[in-house]
């Protein structure tokens, strides 16, 4: 279970203006501004739930994920994930989670995928028997027999993503964070990835938290949606709740646009 309680986070960023004279000015006097990335965030996610975490760019999605995965310490508030605070005991906490950053690869570029998997096995200290079972399951579910013998650099984006997600699941995490897992994929790969995630969630009761800009992902995979904007949680409910708030009976994309307009984000 994930319980997030009144978390806030502020960043200090340097102002940098364009233009020649501004550059000269900044040479002598640098200015900073404070950005509230997260402003009093609270929510609870139960075991085995699949949650879509959406919002425009810079809304605070990735800050939240970073806090939940123990990378970032918030200014205030508390967070309890299976009895642990993520940023206090990082190593113990991350054994139980898997993270997929859609835009970056965790596979080693020049070696066959299976080599990366074996390294991950050693990093996570997965017992050999368990590793074999997991690998077999993942390989059959995603049809990876041939692909995992190929060096990563020779894979298409879709094939690569079909390896990235299992790479984060080799150690049976209880919670899986997916950051834009379908970005740039063709229709076939997209659907394969979606079905696979649904399958894993059913089989292992893995909690999945998904951030995406693709509303079809949300529609296909999640029931619950948390909408964040300017660091605040604006809505937490089901898809139909969302359509109700938006007060349009249109496609989900249009509903989101309407919502963004309503909340002025």
């Amino acid at each position: 279970m994930i319980k997030v309680d009144h978390i806030s986070k502020t960043f200090k960023v340097a102002k940098r203006n364009a233009g020649f004279s501004e550059a000269v000015k900044a040479l002598f006097n640098k200015q900073y501004e404070y950005v509230k990335a997260l402003d009093d965030i609270s929510f609870t996610i139960n075991e085995g739930e699949m949650v879509g975490y959406i919002g425009p760019n810079g809304a605070g999605k990735s800050s939240t994920i970073k806090i939940l995965s123990g990378i970032l310490t918030p200014d205030c508030g508390s967070c309890d994930i299976n009895g642990r605070t993520p940023w206090i005991n990082r190593v113990k906490h991350v054994k139980d989670i898997g993270v997929v950053f859609g835009q970056r690869s965790q596979l080693w570029w020049d070696v066959p995928v299976i080599d990366s998997f074996e390294l991950l096995r050693d990093i996570y200290n997965v017992p050999q028997i368990k590793y074999k079972d997991n690998l077999e399951e993942l390989v059959t579910l995603l049809n990876l027999e041939e692909i995992i013998k190929t060096p990563t650099r020779q894979l298409s984006l879709g094939q690569r993503m079909r390896c990235e997600i299992p790479a984060s699941l080799l150690h049976n995490p209880k919670i899986l964070f997916l950051d834009e897992p379908t970005i740039g994929l063709d229709a076939v790969s997209k659907i394969a990835v979606r079905n696979f995630i649904l399958d894993i969630n059913k089989r292992h009761k893995t909690t999945v938290i998904l951030t995406t800009h693709d509303m079809q992902d949300i529609e296909a995979m999640t029931n619950r949606i948390i909408l964040i904007g300017k660091g605040k949680i604006l809505m937490d409910g089901t898809l139909s709740d969302m359509k109700k708030v938006a007060a349009v009976d249109a496609s989900i994309d249009e509903a989101v646009v309407e919502l963004y307009k309503q909340y002025e984000i």
Binding site: F20, A23, V24, A26, L27, K30
Partner: peptide, 12 residues
């Protein structure tokens, strides 16, 4: 030239 030059100046 100006563009390059002013980017260079930013690194105080």
């Amino acid at each position: 030239f100006r563009l390059r030059f002013s980017t260079g100046l930013q690194y105080r």
